[in-house]
Design a protein around this nucleic acid. Structure first.
Lengths: 224, 224
DNA sequence: CGCAGCACGGGATGATTTCCCGATGGTCTT
DNA sequence: AAGACCATCGGGAAATCATCCCGTGCTGCG
């Protein structure tokens, strides 16, 4: 299936050193050629228009507009663009956004060099690649019937969640648990990340589905 | 019922001019005597301990601890203290807090001098006085079965509330309504005030009771 | 007309969120 | 036992948000 000419790759990462590393691995096999490097979403987009690479290897976190935003623009310009996203973490929220933006794959940065090369090859042929961790997280997110999503929370996070849903403010929770308000704040950010909600309202919706919210019992369920 | 000696009054307000005004009106009838003035909660509390006034006329908003806090302390010291609260606005949240703190009455600052004198007399005898506006607001708050509370919102506020409950973020709402994020922010503060909720979670609880939240239908109500 | 209420947003200040980081202690594995 | 991994706790910095206060403009009403 593979044609003879090398796969033309565009590298996007804000650290030149990291790009150099990728370049080494990718060009090692002679099956691919890095035709451009970019450090920001804007540069990446310009280069994409110029070079029309076969595959874009893109870091998620860039200064300014994110890699996801860059991917969105590329896909808007050319629906056949193959964008392979990279991220430090396997956070489902990022993965979902990336894939919704049209990315063909999502890898965490601890991916082995070999696997990276395989993923680029796969991308060039239009096949998807997901890091195992990412796949698992996403699966949970998509398949889990909402009421089980809260399971990703640690005991402590769950506790904080419970108090929040009871209507307590940040300060009150901090006092109740004898913790710094800062900790609660940090923990809540973590919770929102994990549950992929962008507001307290969405959190309540989730918790309500899980039956955690007495005053908003699910339709059809007995209240007592 | 009234004894012979004048009613001894403690005036608390951060503006000396305002205190002077009150003093004039109160002492005019010779039935009462201002035995002290304070500009902060702390001063008020000290004077209260010293003078044991029959009635405290207290402004809500003071620099530092609020008048409500001062009232709380006085009541803690002496459960028979008669504290008559004053406020610029007829906000139910303040009124509720003041009365829960043990205040014997709650007047808005547009009260007629005569009515003020009457209220102090009443307080001295242990009778409660509420400004009509305050009474109405409070009545709505206490009596209204939750699902009607949202009625205090203006159409625009209601609209914003709806979008918020749909899970939209501040920015998204601003964009949807083509308004400045600042306006939405301001408006949300207003909404929280009016509905007397301290968090989005409490707001959802309210809205849910009002049947405004599809995903959290009230128990027993058909969803479809 | 004057005045009240609603809608809109700027300014200032303080709180919260977010992202980053490091420290600690427990568990599990090799 | 050493190392990896995770949960928990919080500090720092920058961005965002909430709150309070202010002024504008519009509308309806006595």
């Amino acid at each position: 299936m593979s044609s003879n000419h090398p796969i033309r790759v565009l590298l996007v990462d804000d650290h030149a050193v990291v790009r150099a590393g990728y370049r080494r691995f990718l060009e090692h096999s002679r099956m691919m050629e890095v035709v451009g490097e970019a450090g920001t979403a804007d540069e990446a987009y310009q280069l994409f228009r110029l070079m029309k690479p076969d595959v874009v290897v893109m870091d998620i976190s860039l200064p300014g507009p994110s890699g996801i935003e860059a991917a969105r623009r590329m896909l808007a310009l050319d629906g056949r663009a193959r964008v392979l996203m990279f991220s430090m973490h396997a956070q489902p929220a990022f993965a979902r956004q990336a894939l919704e933006a049209g990315a063909i794959g999502f890898l965490t940065k601890d991916t082995e060099p070999d696997a990276l090369v395989q993923a680029v090859l796969a991308a060039a042929q239009g096949r998807r690649t997901l890091s195992p961790r990412v796949a698992e997280q996403l699966a949970l997110h998509n398949v889990m019937p909402d009421e089980r999503r809260l399971d990703v929370l640690t005991p402590r996070e769950f506790e904080i969640c419970r108090l929040l849903l009871a209507g307590m403010t940040l300060e009150e929770i901090a006092e109740a648990l004898k913790l710094s308000p800062k900790t609660i704040s940090n923990r809540m950010s973590e919770i929102r990340q994990k549950l992929d909600v962008r507001s307290d309202v969405e959190l309540v919706r989730l918790a309500s589905a899980a039956g955690l919210v007495p005053w908003a019992a699910k339709p059809g369920e007995p209240t007592n």
